[in-house]
Design a protein around this nucleic acid. Structure first.
Lengths: 199, 199
DNA sequence: TACAAACTACACAGACCTGTGTAGTTTGTG
DNA sequence: CACAAACTACACAGGTCTGTGTAGTTTGTA
């Protein structure tokens, strides 16, 4: 048996343990096609891993979905961290966040915010994926608040809340009309808000 | 046959033709539980109408979904129209839009923006429902632009675009964390934007 | 009363879904 | 080499989904 165990190609992919490959496949499929639209058979097949392994590693689809979002959250936060660290001027750091979102949502494969999409697809607010989604937004907001504080703004929390709203609005609108323009609008409003507080 | 054709209760509901009852059931179910999560059997059963009628009237689920959104679009636009008409002061009309959204998203049965949710659930941007969703947002924006123009703002289109962004951000955020607070944030930013242009 | 349109119940096709049970195979490590 | 952990293939249960085919019934109207 084991009909595909000979080729050298398999040796390369085989090195990555099953869970890793499953998460990669799930990430791509869930984001592009939707969570409900993709079955566990499709995920495991794409990962080149048996469905049994998926269930042994993740327990079920719900947890796989939550893991997919957890990983996406981690990566986005790390990316944002890197981007803002590379900018010296404190106020520019905040604008760099808008730059990061801007690059993301003009991409070919942009399909809206994965966390918002998950919330839209999953009505149950106690679903593990919903909780990850909520945490993600809180995380971004905290990052914004830290940057706002670093830039010396009064009431950095308030500014962060407002900037987050702009990012959310731009992301949702960009997803709706498949355009990068909403982010320019958001950025210009952000600039106006910041300037109004520059004293 | 016709096991439930005797009671007077049926006579009352029977009066409404099938398509109407189907749309009502679809509206409620699709919004609350999600489009993919609800099957045509469930819709027709809830409507008290045979599945065959659903297919004879709408051709298929896709068109039923599009109709569901078309009707929601119509009703929301009419509601917004009514709300803003009842306000005399031109500038207050714009704020009344925020008031309307505010009342909506603090409701018990709020489950996010039906159009954004549909876009999240349906990856195909050419799906009839996606086109309805896009048109809906354009319609709201046009309404905002008309109000902004009526209030005498320079560049009413630009202001409308910005206000729409705020509404979208507030709706998305409210759906994520199940709270009405984001709309207050959006409203206060809107006010700030308008005051900055009051000259 | 005749007739057409709208509706009904119901069975079915064919596909998909999540999840489990099982027996056997590969693989890394002591 | 021995052994445990991780993996495999595969069949299956029990459900769901969209959509169709059909024969018969109700209902409003001419």
């Amino acid at each position: 048996m084991m009909e595909q165990r000979a080729g050298g190609e398999k040796l390369a992919t085989r090195r990555r343990p099953g869970a890793e490959r499953l998460l990669e496949a799930a990430s791509d499929l869930f984001y592009r096609e939707g969570i409900r639209a993709v079955g566990v058979d499709t995920v495991s097949e794409r990962a080149g891993v048996s469905k049994r392994t998926l269930y042994n590693r993740f327990g079920g689809k719900d947890e796989l979905v939550a893991e997919y979002l957890r990983r996406r959250d981690e990566r986005w936060r790390a990316y944002l961290q890197g981007v803002t660290e590379r900018v010296a001027e404190p106020r520019e750091k905040l604008l760099a966040v808008f730059g990061a979102y801007g690059e993301w949502l003009v991409g070919e494969d942009f399909r809206g915010c994965a966390f918002a999409n998950a919330a839209a697809e999953i009505p149950d607010p106690n679903h593990p994926a919903r909780i990850v989604a909520q945490r993600h937004k809180e995380g971004v907001k905290k990052h914004l608040a830290a940057l706002a504080k670093g830039a010396g703004f009064d009431e950095p929390e308030t500014l962060a809340e407002r900037l987050l709203l702009l990012l959310e609005g731009a992301t949702a609108t960009a997803a709706m009309r498949r355009s990068g323009e909403p982010l320019d609008v958001a950025r210009s409003v952000a600039l106006e808000l910041m300037e109004a507080r520059s004293h």
